[in-house]
Amino acid sequence: MEEDLTLKKARFILADLVQVPEGASPPVRISNSTAGPGAGSSSIVISFNGMRVKKGISTAESLFKMSDDFDKVTVDGKDFLDVKVEPVCYHCPDQAFFNLDERCMYHCIYCASPLLDHNKAKSLTAERMVDMIRANGHVKAIAITSGVYESVQSTIDRMVECVRYLHNEFPELPIGVEPYVDDHEQIDALKDAGATEIKINCEAARKDIFMKVCPELDQDNIIDMLSYAVKIFGKGKVASNIIVGLGESDDDVTSLVKRLAELGITAGLRPLKLNGFVKEQFIEKMGYIAPNTPERLVDLAKKQKSIFENYGLSPKTFDTMCFKCTCCDIVPFIDL
């Protein structure tokens, strides 16, 4: 029964938008993302049986439909899940996950953030973030990411400034950071400012694929930064995303998960999601889309879990960011 629910979560993750009734309003505030797989879309967090999925919503026709009372999801007219819509603090349940700058000088072909309308971009200052956290009243953790605009160092300097300010205002709250870094001293600075966890993303399971999808970045340097981060933040507090569905094999994925685990790094597996902003450019440059299946996501998560067990790692050691949220992935020890 438990695996059936995990498969349902995997199917739900891979689904397109959920159709909501015309004129109906969700019982919670809608989340508008500027980072991650939902960048540029409006979404809600849907929970069931202790699991969560964050889904984009629309009134357009979709296979997945939400009931008028937002308590049931149907597929092709048949009951799929009894659900509850969870409130989001900022981007995540229980977390204030802020994107300092959606602009980015890099051009990873699956990322929608650089393609958004930057004339409407919000300017987030540390003071503004403090006001938002206090106004919400339910924030249990803080997380900060950012596109890289102008330079890596200037972006890190701004993130360090925000982390230090937030840590001084909310010393009781854990702070996770998801930066792009290219120097060990940047990691030191983030830790010294008050960050408690860090996520630096490997993105692709195979280096040749990485060079196609993130042609301006250096995966070897990313892994070096991750290895150094373990020395500074500690085992169980350093994470990395691996996107699955870029054309890699299952062995490619598990090989990188194991390589990172040997270094004390907890790797998350993020199924590729291409929204309308990036799908055309992705196909143009890659020549294909390698679709995931629910069965593949669950099978990979089982292998991921086994590797974690062998190396004494668990997503449960994280208090911030994706492993705490659980909305976008099948998370070992939580979803299976």
Rank of each mutant, 00 (worst) to 15 (best):
K212Y: 03
D117W: 02
M132E: 03
S154Y: 01
L260F: 12
S47K: 15
A193I: 00
L272A: 13
R103P: 11
F277I: 00
T155R: 01
H167L: 02
P215A: 07
D192N: 10
F323N: 09
Q95H: 02
C214S: 09
K324G: 01
P332A: 01
T293E: 15
I265N: 13
R158C: 02
R270W: 08
K8I: 14
S314A: 10
A205M: 08
D299R: 15
K231I: 01
K302C: 04
D224C: 09
F308R: 02
M321Q: 07
I156K: 00
L190Y: 04
I209K: 06
D250C: 11
D94F: 02
L336A: 09
G50W: 03
A290G: 12
G264L: 08
C328I: 06
E216D: 06
P315R: 08
H107C: 11
S227C: 10
I175L: 05
F48P: 04
D76P: 01
D182G: 03
E169K: 05
M66E: 00
D101Q: 02
G23A: 05
E86D: 15
A112T: 11
A24K: 12
T196E: 01
F48Y: 13
C214D: 02
S62P: 08
L7P: 11
A239L: 04
P294D: 06
T293C: 00
P291R: 12
A135C: 13
P87M: 02
K303C: 14
I198K: 04
K72I: 00
D157Y: 06
N49A: 14
F48L: 12
E295S: 09
E197D: 11
P27E: 08
P179L: 08
G276R: 14
V85W: 14
A15N: 07
V130Q: 10
A39T: 02
L263F: 06
I13E: 00
V148A: 03
C89Y: 08
V298F: 11
K9M: 05
G56K: 10
R52W: 01
A195Q: 14
Q95E: 15
S33D: 13
R259A: 13
F70Y: 09
T145M: 13
F318V: 14
E248S: 08
N292E: 12
G23N: 07
S113L: 14
T196P: 08
E178F: 08
P171R: 02
G245T: 00
V278F: 03
A141H: 03
V213M: 07
I30R: 00
I30P: 02
K285Y: 12
G194K: 05
V88P: 05
P93M: 01
P271T: 05
I265R: 00
V163L: 06
P315N: 08
F333R: 12
A24L: 05
P21V: 01
L274Q: 15
I307V: 15
S42Q: 05
L336P: 10
C108Y: 14
S25L: 14
D16G: 03
E248M: 04
D131E: 15
D252C: 10
A121P: 04
L173E: 07
